[in-house]
Design a protein around this nucleic acid. Structure first.
Length: 490
RNA sequence: GGCGCCGUCGCCGAGUGGCUCAGGCGCGGGAUUGCAAAUCCCGAUACCCGGGUUCAAUUCCCGGCGGCGCCUCCA
């Protein structure tokens, strides 16, 4: 469909059109979570980026095969299990269930496949065996390590993704004592079980997989080789993705194993990366509760996906206010369409032309921005031009809309909603009438509004204002409009 | 120390070799309102510093300074 999407490729360090193995099909692998704690806003940012990627690809007519793994066995899970006094499996299951729910609430499209490490142990063991057989790995005690220097002499590309040579990486690496590795760059494919850890049987004894091998095994298993697009946040570039490339290429002999690498920028708080270890995280759950899925999405998409994004409550509130503007625009269109059809005056003619112009140009520019490395921030700018146009006509036009203007308004609304939908916004929620928690509350609020209306008619404004101000304390905003009083949550 | 990214209005954030450079939030003035809110109109304020290339640089190049990410588990 029309212009190709150009995406920045970490591997080549430039924007490139997507090249796929199979015409019309994108094989996409995104690194998923290690379920040892609640999802935080930083995770959400990354997954929203890939969610929009997928939506946009599908919109452009691609079929996307989207695989995202669960790293459901890992040091941190084991530590958590010991803390809570339950099994590692229970920890993983608990946080997977929680994350699945959070992702649903956020409005993320579910990946087609979400494979788990613990369900692929035999595949992993056989891959490690292949690496051993090919001489790219060595066993040491009950551990198995990947031999990076051996790999490097065969493939000459270790460090390509992170832009560093093997030597440079070693120079910056911290020394890890008491490890039996031949070389500081080597990494574990299989870890011998220590006391109290979950384990699986293998040719090297009881143990469990290292971190990187799972992604090689599961991506190759479900997507084939080479595959088109691999994503993750950019803090995974080294060592995770670098090692994954080495493993997968050593396994298959295919290079490059992944055509296109896409990395999202990390989320920061007060300029520092949001992470569990720094303790500066906000759980997705809390953020969703406070700001809602649409505001969070708008916040994320207002910054290019590769840039770092600093998360503050103020910005989240700002996003909420912006969202309200969109809501008002849709309402303004609705109200104007509800008016009786007027005559096609010169003014109406002019307004109609302007509306069409905004629809045409806005759409064109929107897609151009999206095609240029998913520039959602710019695209949203054009969206707001349409929003502005809707709000202006809703107010400045003194006369009812002509038939032609109504047609233009319908087109504007259609365009606005379809583009919002394309970016993954939940229009139903955006347009839904606001509700309180229960029917009684709604009835009581309605009663207060009616009483206040009476008070206003009798010019007892101090009492009317008291009601408004007290409701404000509860987070209810009253707005008196020519069509009557309406309320919304603050 | 190495690699990479970045430094644009009060805040956030697109973007461009020359038309004073989107958009959002916030702020000031006005319209509207019983007063507000919402909306509309008007407005102000920016391209880190120093060189260079160029007729012209915020945009390209070099050098500073500052920030962030990665080099260790991390989305």
């Amino acid at each position: 469909m029309d212009a190709p999407l150009r995406l920045y490729n970490t591997r080549t360090r430039q924007k490139e059109p997507l090249q796929t193995r199979e015409a019309g099909v994108v094989h996409l692998y995104v690194c998923g979570l290690t379920p040892y704690d609640s999802m935080h806003v930083g995770h959400a940012r990354t997954f929203v980026a890939f969610d929009v990627l997928r939506r946009y690809l599908e919109h452009k007519g691609w079929q996307v095969v989207h695989v995202q793994n669960w790293t459901d066995i890992d040091d941190k899970i084991i530590r958590k299990a010991n803390e809570l006094g339950i099994s590692a499996k229970e920890v993983a299951e608990r946080f997977i269930a929680e994350a699945e729910e959070d992702c649903r609430t956020l409005g993320l499209l579910r990946p087609h496949l979400m494979p788990k490490v613990t369900e692929h142990i035999p595949d992993i063991i056989s891959a490690i065996q292949t690496l051993l057989d090919k001489g790219f790995a060595y066993a040491r005690g009950g551990d198995v390590y990947f031999d990076v220097s051996r790999y490097e002499s065969a493939f000459h590309d270790y460090g390509l993704l992170s832009g560093q040579t093997r030597e440079e990486l070693i120079a910056g690496a911290r020394v890890e004592p008491d490890e039996d590795k031949d070389d500081p760059m080597d990494f574990a494919l299989w870890k011998a079980a220590k006391g109290g850890e979950p384990f699986w049987e293998s040719p090297w004894g009881f143990g469990r997989p290292g971190w990187h091998i799972e992604c090689s095994v599961m991506s190759l298993k479900y997507l084939g080789a080479p595959f088109d697009l691999h994503g993750g946040a950019n803090d995974l570039v080294f060592p995770h993705h670098e090692n994954e490339i080495a493993q997968s290429q050593a396994l298959t002999g295919i290079k490059p194993i992944v055509t296109h690498w896409m990395h999202s920028g990390v989320l920061t708080v007060g300029g520092e990366k949001m992470s569990k270890s720094l303790g500066n995280f906000v759980t997705l759950r809390d953020a969703l509760k406070r700001h809602g899925k649409n505001a969070l999405r708008l916040l994320f998409l207002s910054t290019h996906y590769r840039s770092p994004l600093d998360y503050t409550e103020e910005r989240a509130e700002g996003a909420k206010a912006s969202l309200n503007r969109i809501r008002m625009a849709l309402e303004a269109i609705k109200n104007r369409l509800a008016l009786p059809t007027g005559e096609a005056t010169d003014a109406a003619q002019k307004r109609t032309e302007q509306l069409w112009e905004v629809v045409r140009e806005g759409t064109r520019l929107f897609y151009a921005a999206m095609d240029d490395d998913l520039n959602t921030a710019e695209a949203i700018g054009y969206l707001f031009r349409m929003v502005g146009a809707a709000l202006v006509t809703g107010v400045t036009a003194k006369e009812p809309p002509s038939a032609a203007e109504k047609e233009a308004l319908l087109a504007l609304r259609e365009r606005l909603t379809s583009l919002l939908n394309l970016l993954g916004f939940d229009l139903a929620e955006l347009e839904a009438p606001q509700r309180l928690d229960d029917a009684l509350s709604e009835n009581l609020l309605q009663l207060l509004v009616e009483i206040r209306q009476q008070l206003r008619q009798r010019k007892l404004f101090d009492l009317a204002d008291l009601i408004r101000s007290r409701l404000g304390d509860f987070g209810i905003v009253l707005e008196d409009t020519p069509q009557g009083t309406r309320w919304r949550r603050s």
